[in-house]
């Protein structure tokens, strides 16, 4: 009995509303009856059965985000697109600049070179590992070559001489035979003596020459069954290659490049390498 009295008293003291269910509660708090803040635009009648309040939401949004009209939206999109395009352009410009700086270093480096095993004109074994730690200029040719090979080897020797003066012996000239049947070790020894004193002549058998040329993307026409005494010429690629101390391809020089062109290109690469790694080899 005393329990009932207390409950009753408490209810009276706080004047609790007496909603019987949610719907009744909503109506008693709907804007049309509880607040006159916004003018009613849709309904002028009494309380209507509505389950959401779009009008009211719109008003609140407007006061929260300010003026957001279609024009503002268009301006926003336009400015955004403009900025996006500008930054894209700027980014491309910078990338282009960087590419120019890195020209032919890491970007688009050709897959030229690879493992090989041949013999020097002194009869010593020589592999791609022996090229590491030195810059190299490599020419592929044959000792019975009428004019192009000696011209190119002279050009290479001249370039190496000039580079020796500036840097010391850090560029190794190499001559690789594409005519192993006739280019024996003594033959190579006689031939390379006509050119740079450091020039290394490499020869081997047909299979090793073929494999080396394949690694260096060099074409040659020597028939596999060529006899040492035959008088024939070999058609072959006449580029010479410039490789870095890691054994990676840097540049190929053709007949149209002069010794000065070669020196200039090699020097540029050497300086870039030095700037990057703080040493020349």
């Amino acid at each position: 009995m005393s329990m009932n009295t207390i409950t009753f008293a408490a209810r009276r003291a706080v004047r609790l509303p007496k909603p019987t269910n949610a719907l009744q509660y909503y109506f008693s708090h709907s804007p049309s009856t509880s607040s006159a803040r916004a003018p009613r635009s849709i309904s002028t009648g009494g309380p209507r059965r509505r389950y959401s309040t779009p009008v009211n939401d719109k008003q609140q949004n407007k006061s929260a985000v300010g003026v957001f009209s279609p024009q503002a939206a268009a301006l926003f999109v336009l400015a955004g697109t403009g900025l996006f395009l500008y930054f894209k352009w700027e980014k491309e410009r910078l990338a282009e600049q960087k590419q120019k700086d890195m020209e032919s270093r890491t970007v688009g480096r050709a897959h030229v070179g690879g493992p090989f095993q041949m013999t020097t004109h002194e009869g010593k074994p020589f592999s791609d590992k022996d090229m590491l730690g030195k810059w190299s200029l490599i020419y592929f040719g044959f000792t019975n070559c009428p004019d192009i090979c000696p011209d190119e080897l002279d050009k290479m020797s001249a370039a190496v001489n000039t580079l020796d003066e500036s840097y010391g012996p850090i560029v190794q000239p190499i001559f690789i035979s594409v005519d192993p049947a006739r280019d024996t070790i003594p033959q190579m020894a006689r031939y390379v003596a006509d050119f740079h004193p450091r020039l290394v002549g490499l020869t081997g058998d047909y299979a090793t020459a073929k494999a080396t040329c394949k690694a260096y993307r060099v074409y040659f026409s020597t028939p596999p069954d060529a006899k040492p005494g035959d008088d024939y010429l070999v058609d072959h690629s006449i580029f010479f290659y410039f490789m870095d101390p890691d054994g990676k391809f840097v540049e190929a020089f053709g007949k149209s490049s002069s010794a000065e062109d070669v020196v200039e290109r090699v020097k540029r690469e050497l300086e870039e390498w030095k700037a990057e790694r703080g040493r020349l080899v």
């Binding site: 019975n144 009428p146 004019d147 049947a181 006739r182 280019d183 033959q187 006689r190 006899k227």
Partner: peptide, 20 residues
Amino acid sequence: FGNRKEPPAAASRQDRTRCW
């Protein structure tokens, strides 16, 4: 060229110059 035994020695610088 013809007088040498196999393999014939490649032309030396002097040989080449003479030929040219």
